[in-house]
Simulated assay, not measured.
Amino acid sequence: MRYPSWLRVHLAAVRALLVLTVVLGLVYPLAVYAAGRLPGLESRADGSLVTIGGRTVGSELIGQSFTGPDGRPLRQYFQSRPSSGEYDPAASGASNLGPENVVDTLPDPKAGVEGVQSLLTQVCARSKAVGELNGVSGARPFCTRGGLGAVLAVFGSRAADGTVPHPTRVVSLNEEAGVVKAPFVASYKGVRVELARPGEDYAKGLVVPVRGDAPAEPAVPPDAVTASGSGLDPDISPAYAAIQVKRVAQARGIAPAQVERLIRRQGRALGFMGEPAVNVLKLNLALDRAYPVRQG
């Protein structure tokens, strides 16, 4: 019996739907699940979870904080790189702030305005904190000694190239009067620098970041002050690990060389792929196994 053409088309569509439903909705998912149960792949399929004494302590693929109840970094542990989502997988993502984000929004309680740090100030504050924690210089170009972005608003007539050759007023945009005692630089082109005041409009001023005298290559490496794109990077660079060695060794009462040996056990993926990296969770667990912290 020959069916009408319109019916044949619909029957063909129904057959295709049934076949694709079975293949893609049943066979393929079961095949993927079965592959994930193969020896050696089961842990990765479950999220590379790390279990100690029957308790899950984290994942090799997701960064986490190593802080105490007060939120301060625990000195006996290596610290991860910053996270814009507080290491929450559900809040994975970047801050969406770019290199031009250098001016803070100062808090103004009278106007109901909350303070918002610029990307530059976030980097400067982190660099200062990491330096103090690990006993190295936290100095960084375009940062004040207090850990704020070193940025001026320069007022006056502008030249053809957009500069202000003869300023009439200069304000340190990220240093708030009443919070900071004095601006990071006393004068700019012969004009006294003022501290910023909440609620004042400095939009007409030329924004001028000031490099300062910090070294071109700071002691605190970039991954110590910037979050990854996902905010969940579990690894740090060998350079960031290196500046933490002395602190961790002192907290555990061991020699720095003993800590460095554990760091050297990590490296590139499969021994040759990508840049060298140090997995913070695995390193801290190795430290606890080999050199547990002495109580009391």
Rank of each mutant, 00 (worst) to 15 (best):
V19D: 09
V185E: 06
I243L: 14
G274I: 01
L262R: 01
P4G: 14
R268S: 03
L152C: 10
D288G: 04
S137F: 11
D70K: 02
V180A: 08
D104A: 10
G53Y: 02
P292R: 03
S127M: 10
Y28N: 07
R37M: 01
E175R: 04
W6K: 06
E60R: 12
Y3C: 02
E194R: 12
A129G: 07
E42Q: 11
R252Y: 07
A203K: 15
I52V: 15
S83F: 08
G199R: 13
A111R: 15
D104E: 10
V193E: 00
A290R: 05
T21N: 13
R37N: 01
P89F: 09
V207E: 06
C124N: 11
A242S: 09
Q295P: 00
N101R: 12
G178S: 07
H10I: 08
G212C: 09
L24E: 04
E86T: 07
V278H: 03
V103C: 08
S48K: 07
L148H: 13
R44G: 08
L285H: 00
R197H: 14
S43H: 07
V22K: 11
P222G: 04
A239I: 03
V27Q: 12
V57I: 12
L232I: 00
R169C: 06
E200A: 14
L97M: 15
P215K: 03
K181T: 10
L17K: 01
A12W: 11
L20K: 06
K189R: 15
S137H: 12
V116L: 13
E100R: 15
E275W: 00
L173D: 05
E132Q: 14
A251Y: 07
G190H: 13
L38H: 09
S43C: 01
R2G: 09
E275L: 07
R289S: 03
G98K: 14
D235E: 03
I236S: 00
S237N: 04
L41N: 11
G267R: 05
G199I: 13
